[in-house]
Amino acid sequence: MNTFGNIFRLTTFGESHGPAVGGVVDGMPAGIVIDMDFLQAELNRRRPGQSRLTTPRKESDTVELLSGVFEGKSTGCPIGFIVRNENQHSSDYDNLKDIFRPSHADYTYFYKYGIRDHRGGGRSSARETISRVVGGALAKMALRQLNIDIIAYTSQVGEIALEKNYQQYDFSEIEKNAVRCPDSQKSEEMAQKIEAVKAEGDTIGGVITCIIKGCPIGLGEPAFGKLHAALGAAMLSINAVKGFEYGGGFDCVKYRGSELNDIFYTNKEGNIRTHTNDSGGIQGGISNGEDIYFRVAFKPVATLLREQETVDTQGRPTIVKARGRHDACVLPRAVPIVEAMAAMTLLDAYLKNKTTRI
């Protein structure tokens, strides 16, 4: 499956060490102003080599739109795009041709298809997420007209975690540091942690928090089309993601219903709201108009610059040590990916919702 979405759909193609990665966005509403500066800026947030904390692979990640845009606006036709790969070091992976790297897709991909591209993981490489960021940026442009805003940030690296509610942070601080954390003190601690782990040839995981503001009431469906299920599926499709929780999440198990229920009230404008938001902006699988917020857990990157035991394609024991350029922590570059998947999910749900009521 290389296509995401129902009405707003993204189909991606390409491999890490091929000529390019790209995609086709279908279902983009017509008449949306296409802000190329914004689109490129979103890709720049994801691209490698942007700080001392990320892989040093140098890629401009310049996007080329091939169709679906005329005089600066979307036409309603499919938007085709490519981002050319410019700095592959395929020889760095020669020693992995006949070896299964621990916790990678190597073994499962080879077993399923009988062939695999060992250069950077081929299709299973996180470089595929470039196409998601492009699709997400286009979705964000459409969501702007609905006053829907999506913000994500790094809230935990290893054991270093933010302790305050998201409402207590200044989101303008997120892009001021390499970790993309709204707490300047914690961001420095996180950066030091990543650098220390990197120096040991190891990796570390963490958590990204995402908030959706301005979501209208009524998105999502009550049974198998729940909005939180769609968001969860979108997040769990991202490389290295191991967990998803929204609202009160797993902490809810510690409380009684009398402590956790979000009590309704009518505000001065006559709108029904809730005093608290442990539901995370979604009740019964349908958005209720409050902020939607969720957390995404990322495992440590599986590629280590140190020796590990493994087996080759014949099942014989061997030792593997990765070469090349790799992230010690994916969190900083994954922030725009989380936002992109959330944006595409929300726009798809909005367009789908327009057909449910006359």
Rank of each mutant, 00 (worst) to 15 (best):
P300R: 02
G49W: 07
T313D: 12
G14R: 09
M235F: 13
G14Y: 13
V24H: 01
C215P: 01
R119M: 08
I217G: 02
G243I: 06
I160K: 00
T356M: 14
K193I: 01
G280K: 01
M190D: 04
T266A: 03
V24I: 15
T129S: 15
D262H: 01
H17K: 05
Q185M: 13
T11D: 03
R306N: 11
L305T: 01
A126H: 11
P317Y: 11
K352F: 13
T11R: 09
V134T: 04
Y113I: 11
G324A: 09
V133K: 00
E128G: 02
P216K: 07
P48K: 10
Q167L: 15
Y153H: 07
I79Q: 01
V33H: 09
E290G: 00
V24C: 12
A233W: 07
K73N: 05
R9V: 08
V133A: 09
G80N: 10
S237D: 13
G76W: 12
V207M: 13
K73M: 15
K58Q: 15
Q283Y: 02
D251I: 00
P56R: 12
D61L: 09
V241K: 05
Q88N: 14
T154Y: 06
T11H: 07
A302L: 08
K254G: 06
V179E: 12
S155A: 09
T75Y: 09
K254H: 15
E259G: 04
V33F: 13
K299V: 02
D312P: 00
A196P: 00
S187P: 02
T75G: 09
I174V: 15
V330Y: 05
L96E: 14
E71C: 10
A334L: 11
D251R: 02
T108Y: 08
T345D: 13
L304A: 07
A322S: 14
A234D: 13
T345N: 07
A137C: 00
F171N: 09
V335G: 08
R123G: 08
M1W: 11
L10E: 10
D327F: 10
R47D: 14
S187A: 15
G22M: 02
A297H: 03
G247Y: 09
I32T: 04
M235H: 10
T62W: 13
G280L: 12
T303H: 03
N261H: 14
A340S: 14
R116W: 14
L236C: 13
L138N: 03
G23D: 14
Y265S: 08
L347Y: 05
S67I: 06
D94G: 01
L304S: 06
K352Q: 15
F4V: 13
K112M: 14
L65K: 03
V63F: 11
G136R: 05
L236A: 02
Y255N: 10
E86K: 01
R256Q: 15
V320E: 10
I319H: 03
I7W: 09
I79C: 04
A234F: 10
A297G: 12
A302H: 12
F171L: 09
V335P: 01
A178P: 01
T129F: 12
R127C: 04
E339W: 03
R132S: 13
I263R: 12
A340R: 05
A139S: 05
I7K: 08
N147P: 00
V197T: 12
